[in-house]
């Protein structure tokens, strides 16, 4: 009886096969406790030097969190641990309630819904803004699928939506190589968004930006919070003040202070670390 059923599916013109539909649904992560990321007692050492030292931190679902700290504090290393690039010596890292990050490979973690933007923008220079977003789109990326792929209305809508979010709608046919530094950074954030991540890790997004671009970036990141959880690593205190509700200060591989920006800024230990720099 199974075969006729399957045949019927083929005959049914309204039937949508699963493989057609892999385009836009986001990955699932269990956030029933309203926490998206648990890092507990994480230590990483490089040749005896402790880059991370018993780091413990929680990120709430939909939160926008800023991580600051002097150079070498371990900010990038922390992101490496979350994305599976570096394995910690001790500690635990959970994504939501059910995904143990320490048991997953880099692509699996990306698949699960953690997107990362690196410090240096790496967009495809010879492709247009639209094509960059198309390439980054979540979905089946096998050879045969892409050879015969047609853009579905839903996918087109998603690309337009993201172009609007990152403010590059007018530049959709421009080559990415011709964009300004700031626009490239936004495009890269857009490419991250195309993969529908639940958690976005953004490393020093405003380095090298003009004040206007910085301001625009702040708006962009703020607008993403809620729908996504966003963790931003940044040096620029003005920028941090313009976006952050909660700030975590890292120092020598562990959390020095955490709280609202005004409280943290007046914390004598934080002042000492920053003045000592």
């Amino acid at each position: 009886m199974k075969l006729p059923n399957a045949l019927e599916k083929f005959a049914d013109r309204e039937h949508v096969f699963d493989f057609v539909n892999t385009g836009t649904q986001g990955p699932k992560v269990d956030i029933s406790h309203n926490v998206i990321l648990y890092l507990e007692d994480i230590s990483v050492s490089f040749d005896g030097f402790k880059a991370l030292n018993d780091l413990t931190m929680y990120i709430g679902a939909g939160e926008l969190r800023c991580i600051i700290g002097p150079n070498g504090a371990g900010k990038t290393t922390m992101m490496d641990v979350i994305t599976g690039k570096t394995r910690p010596d001790t500690g635990t890292a959970w994504f939501g309630q059910s995904i143990n990050l320490l048991q997953k490979s880099e692509p699996e973690i990306a698949e699960a819904g953690i997107g990362r933007k690196f410090q240096k923008p790496t967009v495809f220079q010879m492709h247009s803004v639209f094509e960059n977003l198309e390439l980054a789109m979540a979905g089946n990326k096998s050879v045969w699928t892409t050879l015969f792929a047609r853009m579905t209305p839903m996918q087109l809508e998603r690309i337009n939506e993201v172009m609007e979010i990152i403010g590059l709608q007018e530049h959709q046919h421009a080559l990415a190589g011709s964009l300004s530094h700031g626009q490239k950074q936004w495009l890269e954030i857009g490419m991250l968004l195309m993969q529908n991540p639940t958690l976005l890790l953004v490393d020093e997004p405003v380095a090298g930006m003009t004040p206007q671009e910085t301001e625009r970036t702040a708006e962009l990141l703020v607008s993403l919070a809620g729908k996504h959880s966003v963790v931003v690593v940044e040096h620029d205190m003005d920028f941090v003040r313009s976006i952050a509700r909660t700030v975590t200060v890292l120092h020598e591989g562990s959390v020095l202070a955490e709280g609202p920006i005004d409280v943290v800024q007046n914390d004598p230990r934080v002042i000492e670390v920053y003045l000592g720099e």
Binding site: T122, F124, M126, H127, L135, K141, V143, L147
Partner: peptide, 13 residues
């Protein structure tokens, strides 16, 4: 095709 855009992306990065 999209495949074509992927191979050009491979060429560039």
């Amino acid at each position: 095709s999209r495949f074509g855009r992927v191979i050009q992306a491979i060429r560039d990065s």
